[in-house]
């Protein structure tokens, strides 16, 4: 029902947009024919367009989805103003065309070119300008020397091979990004399930006794899981943090907080000894070759 109503609205809006577009085309045609028609004809046509536009705008609804209709409507109004202005100017004032026609009639008579007639008419309204003759000897007028350039040899344009971007079926890096985070989440859930729903010590989980950089990577990716509320971290009895997988039932009890801790190689070794680790609990995804 809603989709059908929206569809009908879209159809109506599209219809109005088409009509506005057609009116703009008519406006352009009127503008092109403005010099051939009389002012009455032009303005009558513009009035018809205005009337039609007003009729279209009556169907306007305040809850439209986009402003295309409004843009076209204002554009049409602006063009109407411009066309009316041109029509008035063309019929009431002297235009360049009229001036050109008058000059042609005055100068070109019976296939003879007589510019003196125009000069004799214009000189009546002219005024002489003062020229200081004493400055003339100081003017150094040297004709410009035109050096003709030598003809350059024509360069042959070599044809360049066409290059196209490669189209691939999928775009993915399995060892980076969201895939890695997802993989870690799966492992944690498995460890949590195997541990009989017991919380997992945080530092035991992230430490890699063989590679410190992996420890840092684990800490970073684990933070995303915490941020997205897949897991939660709480303080244990011994003061060290514990990791727990979040269930839908216990989501309400969790609250955001901020914890800061520093991890370095010495600290990592200490944790390894504390928890007696030999192998890391989390394993990274295998690197896939492109």
């Amino acid at each position: 029902m809603d989709s059908s109503e929206s569809q009908s609205q879209m159809d109506d809006q599209d219809a109005r947009i088409l009509r506005l577009q057609n009116l703009i085309e008519k406006n352009i045609e009127i503008e092109q024919q403005i010099e051939n028609n009389t002012i009455g004809e032009s303005i009558t046509a513009i009035e018809e367009i205005i009337q039609t536009a007003n009729d279209i705008s009556k169907g306007h609804e305040d809850r439209r989805t986009n402003s295309t209709e409004l843009v076209l409507d204002t554009e049409l109004l602006r063009r109407n103003f411009e066309v009316v202005g041109k029509a008035i100017q063309h019929n009431t004032n002297v235009t360049d065309r009229m001036v050109a026609t008058a000059i042609n009639d005055l100068v070109f008579k019976e296939s003879e070119e007589d510019w003196d007639a125009l000069c004799s008419l214009a000189i009546q309204f002219g005024r002489p300008l003062f020229t200081n003759d004493s400055m003339l000897p100081f003017i150094d007028v040297t004709p410009k020397v035109v050096v003709q350039k030598q003809r350059a040899p024509r360069k042959t344009k070599s044809q360049v091979d066409e290059k196209r971007p490669e189209k691939s079926d999928q775009l993915e890096r399995k060892d980076e990004g969201a895939a890695s985070v997802t993989h870690m989440l799966k492992q944690i859930r498995q460890i949590y399930r195997d541990g009989n729903q017991e919380p997992i010590p945080y530092f035991k989980l992230i430490c890699n006794p063989n590679n410190f950089m992996d420890t840092v990577q684990n800490a970073l990716q684990l933070s995303f899981l915490v941020k997205e509320n897949y897991i939660s971290i709480e303080n244990g009895e011994d003061g060290l943090p514990l990791v727990r997988v979040v269930n839908s039932k216990s989501v309400e009890g969790n609250a955001p907080s901020q914890a800061i801790c520093s991890i370095d190689v010495t600290f990592c070794e200490k944790m390894v000894k504390h928890y007696n680790l030999h192998e890391p609990m989390l394993k990274r995804l295998p690197v896939s070759e492109k």
């Binding site: 009337q51 705008s57 439209r64 204002t74 109004l77």
Partner: peptide
Amino acid sequence: AVVDSVVKKLRMAYHQRAQLFQRS
């Protein structure tokens, strides 16, 4: 008369569009 009528119509259309613009 023609020019005056068209100017008036344009003015009315302008006001309508201005109000519509503000609401939109």
